[in-house]
Design a protein around this nucleic acid. Sequence first.
DNA 1: GTCTATATCTGGATAGAC
DNA 2: GTCTATCCAGATATAGAC
Lengths: 207, 207
Amino acid sequence: MSVTKTNAEKPEVGRAGILNAAASLFCQHGYGGVSLRAIAEAAGIKAGSIYYHFASKDAIVTEILDAGILSVHDEARAAVEALPNDTTPDAIFRAAVRGHLHALLEHGDYTSANVRIFGQVPPAVRDANLPVRKAYEKYLDDLLSDLQATGAIREGVSLSRLRLLLIGALNATLEWFDPEQGGAEALADDYADTFLNGILNKTGDNT
Amino acid sequence: MSVTKTNAEKPEVGRAGILNAAASLFCQHGYGGVSLRAIAEAAGIKAGSIYYHFASKDAIVTEILDAGILSVHDEARAAVEALPNDTTPDAIFRAAVRGHLHALLEHGDYTSANVRIFGQVPPAVRDANLPVRKAYEKYLDDLLSDLQATGAIREGVSLSRLRLLLIGALNATLEWFDPEQGGAEALADDYADTFLNGILNKTGDNT
DNA sequence: GTCTATATCTGGATAGAC
DNA sequence: GTCTATCCAGATATAGAC
């Protein structure tokens, strides 16, 4: 973001290196399973040196949690805003799902770390992450609300529950997703299809 | 429930007390966030005494993880098997969802602990839990496979992905479910409805 | 079956040299 | 900006008294 970072071709040092290493370790081993010594080693420095950049372990975690949510939020919004004006409602829904999953599964450790460790961090750290989370939730709620207002989503569907179902199902893909067996885009389309149309056979050709 | 437990009005002692206390703490604070001292205190004993009942912290965790899966498996199967013979396919699906959610949300800490800490435990502990997990996955796969074979579930639906979507969405309810705002049964019906029918408005009465 | 006491290790965090 | 050295709290686990 700043001018001084534009020419930095080796980001695995200093502040950024610590954050990258920490995010990767956190999503592998959980909050309690990662020591500052482990983070330091992964970043190629010694544990004591971390305190030049961060005041505490929780300061690192706080920054990682925020970056994780911002990443999905940005990517989901970008995917939706890139659509032409005459896009059908179900394609808007599909785009949001694709943006969320892409950020989660292929973009980086920050988003994954957030999903994995949010429930384990100390209350103060969790609270610090809440504003960013709520902002993303509001974005999704507004999007779903628009879709229901235009009649694309059935009246009977509770939007608050739908958002929770959606985020829950999408985030859970993290536990088993394997990029070797089809990319995040194909998965997103498949999931979106299930959410939109359901699984029930409506053609009446039962055996 | 069992004969030997009928006269036990104070279950929070000994082995069972340790397991109950540990399960409750694990689902609140995660694997790394719970010490043997904390477990001992919650169970009303001292840390050293735990080693009379268990060889290690991981031995406790292993037992809790297995019990958690067995609980959902049993409850889902019981809900399905309690149905009359002429039950419609969608009602079978609904019953399985209800059983899973009920065990997860209202039954106990073991199931919740499993969902929350499975990703954080040492590899050896995780591996020990795999057979029980696979058995439940097979049960669900067979159930869904039957439903698709009878024509109730559309041909195009990938059952392995559907199972993952389903379990992911259901388990995620743990993060926000509040029994004060409607029970697990109502939630289960709502979720099952979304899975079965989708969210799209099919009536064509768009504005 | 539970206690106390303790050995041993690892964690986060600090101080000061370079 | 990173190092070494260290403090101290808290962790698992053990040994032996009761």
